[in-house]
Write a protein that binds this DNA or RNA. Structure first.
Lengths: 133, 133
DNA sequence: GAATGTATGTTCTGGTAAGAACATAAAATA
DNA sequence: TATTTTATGTTCTTACCAGAACATACATTC
């Protein structure tokens, strides 16, 4: 229980460090959004929130900042005036193409050290733990 | 890797909910500090940060708010002018005595559902994961 | 088809969060 | 001992975080 927080914290710091050093200028939350909508035609805020686990109130601000940077754009869905589509701009797509594989590799190189058996076990246990709550 | 974030997130929401419903008025970070220095004669900010994993810049603010609420007090160490001791006031100690066992039980009741074997495995794996970074 | 309920997104608030710059104090070393 | 290095804590900045209140818009129910 202390271990869960410690492991997440360590991962999270490493994750943030990798993004910082990449020079992309993306924060962890911004990267999660970019990496989520990359390769799609755009997604609603609801769906982005469900995947990234960022609550809607927070997500508005994260997307605001990505929009200011010119990495994403928003438009509303015709047919359902409640929904907003968020999609990468051309610039956002370039960042995604460059940073996504790089960052995945950056993380993978660490998790690979765990060994296939441990990785499988960890995945199962973490899913169980999540299911507890 | 997604699983780690998901499990931590779920735990963390449950943890926060328990504190909120307890009526203690403690935020998760504030509770971590109270639960850390409870039962001691006071600790330095450095040591509190090492245990709670709260960075020093953040910790100052958390302790400020606890001090405003009258739950902790600060004084400087004679002999080493850099250090500050943070300790529970009488009111803080009352909160600690009431909330700490209650909250531990609140969390334990969930983790107990995991079974002893899984708990042991999870602990080991999470320590390994932490050690990766 | 009007009243009620649900879904989606924004805004607002209080409180972290990490990192950088700073101030001070102690320790190490030249 | 004077200088440099390290330790500790505060302050500042930017961003995130969850939850609550809000505004719209769609869906239900009668």
């Amino acid at each position: 229980m202390q271990e869960l927080a410690g492991a997440y914290q360590a991962f999270s710091l490493y994750d943030a460090e990798g993004l910082r050093k990449s020079g992309s200028g993306l924060t962890p939350s911004q990267a999660r959004v970019i990496f989520t909508i990359g390769g799609t035609e755009g997604m609603t805020c609801k769906d982005i929130g469900d995947i990234t686990l960022i609550t809607k109130g927070t997500l508005t601000g994260v997307i605001d900042r990505l929009e200011e940077k010119g990495l994403v754009e928003r438009w509303s869905v015709e047919g359902d005036g409640r929904k907003t589509i968020v999609a990468l701009t051309r610039r956002g797509a370039r960042i995604y193409d460059r940073e996504f594989p790089r960052h995945v590799e950056f993380l993978k190189s660490k998790f690979d050290k765990l060994g296939a058996g441990d990785r499988k076990q960890a995945t199962e246990l973490l899913q169980k733990i999540r299911g507890l709550f």
